[in-house]
Design a protein around this nucleic acid. Sequence first.
DNA 1: TATAATGGTGCAAACGTGTGCATAAGGCGG
DNA 2: CCGCCTTATGCACACGTTTGCACCATTATA
Lengths: 366, 366
Amino acid sequence: MHPPRISIKDIAHAAGVSHSTVSRALAGSSLISAETRERIQALAEQMGYIPDAVAQSLQTRSTRTVGLVVTSIADPFFAAIVEGAEETAIAAGMSVFINVSHNDPEAELALIETLHRRRVDGIILAASRLGMRHTQALARVQVPVVMVNRQPDEHDPADFHSIAVDDRGGARLAVEYLLSLGHRRIGYLGMGNRFESNRSRLEGYRAALAGAGIQPPDAWIQTCPAEDASGRGDVAAAETVFPALLAAGVTAVFCYNDQAAVGGLLACRKLRVGVPEGCSLAGFDDIDLARYVEPPLTTVHQPRREMGRQAMQMVLDLLAGKRVENRVLSPTLVIRSSAGKPGEANCPLPLLSAEEKTFRFMEMTE
Amino acid sequence: MHPPRISIKDIAHAAGVSHSTVSRALAGSSLISAETRERIQALAEQMGYIPDAVAQSLQTRSTRTVGLVVTSIADPFFAAIVEGAEETAIAAGMSVFINVSHNDPEAELALIETLHRRRVDGIILAASRLGMRHTQALARVQVPVVMVNRQPDEHDPADFHSIAVDDRGGARLAVEYLLSLGHRRIGYLGMGNRFESNRSRLEGYRAALAGAGIQPPDAWIQTCPAEDASGRGDVAAAETVFPALLAAGVTAVFCYNDQAAVGGLLACRKLRVGVPEGCSLAGFDDIDLARYVEPPLTTVHQPRREMGRQAMQMVLDLLAGKRVENRVLSPTLVIRSSAGKPGEANCPLPLLSAEEKTFRFMEMTE
DNA sequence: TATAATGGTGCAAACGTGTGCATAAGGCGG
DNA sequence: CCGCCTTATGCACACGTTTGCACCATTATA
């Protein structure tokens, strides 16, 4: 019932030549006379021939395929990276295997091995922290590896490369802006499941405060527990943790990412704390969501799609034998309305006294 | 410098057996004595052998790979589908090629051919409308095809299957709810680049109104132009179009999706029309965003991730030779705060007279 | 005219794996 | 002791493609 798949042999038979001639003709080799080349190409077209990439890969030892590992796709940050990477891959005639690790190191290890089995030509990782076993597994694949938003380690293998945004600098940018608005009591809302970048952003936060001669007490720094690794519960986790910051008496909070900031926003709404009048908020990433909430989020912009593109381009360059340099992009601050001067006026929600905040906080967490 | 890739031949040599024995031993064949089988497995493990999926595919004529085509990943609706599909694929030992079509039929055709070349075992399409050429190209791949959210055509090839949510029913649900709140002048805000589903939701809208004896004039139905196919501009496009609905004097709007509803929300905010007091809003999809805007969106929930899972499961079942039936899931209504009774009180934004609305509308669009 | 150079094509091997079939070794009944 | 059955293994081919090399025919050169 199925019309049989046709191969170059079938075409060779139909054209009365050998299959090698067909192969060369379709590859546009100049070894073949123009006449037969065109004849064969026309024939192939007409017979509906579609080359078998599997067989080609086996022979040429290149699959024109790259593996992409992300922690989540539902997280718009990674979604944009995937889009950017896919886009430049397709343009270069490559295909991409998508893999999501759910922030599970074991799963990630298994995914890397699968990619190895499939003989991908390159790997892009936009995922969790890598342990020694991961590094070894990756090195064994003997293929270019590009990490997104992970600073390279000094004893990484030579074929490890990276493209990252300056987390530390971005955080400084945001916190210095809050300082410039007059805030002195500034909190940090972190994400426990984003080890490296969370650490970097926390550092940037500390550096900015230190620059203003401020030493934040522990209570100003709250971190969402790491257990919720799906990346989908970011908002809810932040909403739960946020009241502790209000209770600590901060007038502004710099949040690990926009999801966390939205969580803070929801918490404020529930507690009837006005934003930015009662508490200023700054996020990170500049996902679409940041523009749509009320008030729109002041946040640190990352060129996420561009990072995906560049990561893939690095893989392509490495495959082409070019030398590439690790890149770290500078984020920019997008000023919207979620951060204002401390205690600014005309606030539809009543400003709460410290006691009231504490009271409501206890109400929420019980 | 590179340690050479090791194949079953290397293992065979090291073990003093033939490569066929190794192949069988690693496959766990009972033809091989338990002793040598274990010896070979241990040896393979120790030598760091990783099977070559390419060679396996060539031989077994199965790549254990499925192609997934979506219009966008930045759109959270599709992102969730991808996650669901990837999840069940991995669990079944399959890998997925991700492809984004950007709603471009030509690009989509090219993607299908690429998947054909790569000899995927199945294809899932969550993408734009398919023309005849697409159908033919898909049929030529001779592989199970599952469409997400596209009703099957009666003259589709036999290997075409689908899983969809009842767009029409979902739209009815939402509009009937608006009617039940007391609205009579209800508009529809459509998306021109989502042909089929837009049509179905429009039908549902009409059916619900007809059930209440209402015949909507043309001005109540506005559609965002199709040109913006990226899926990323949905909100902005809706924001631009929305004022025309207010100008038409509707008291409630059912929107094609949540992005459109958010666009409407932004437009209302700009025009200082209170939601839901000045205009009620209902969306579709129930993406995360819907919960985070103010007011939270009343919307039609689709089990997006579940749809991705089921689509992939259908492919797996088809590959296993099982019979599968097309599925259409029933959406549910999630009631939040963006829809209320017409002209309800306690609105922080002033209610506008029809004249004022028109005036502001002209102001915005000039 | 003989020889070399040139251009076009075919032969066969290779990539790494799976598998039908033959075969060898061992046990057992006749 | 011979033949047969069972068990374990090897041989060889196949999957569809690319490519080095040999070969043939034609033309240019001496």
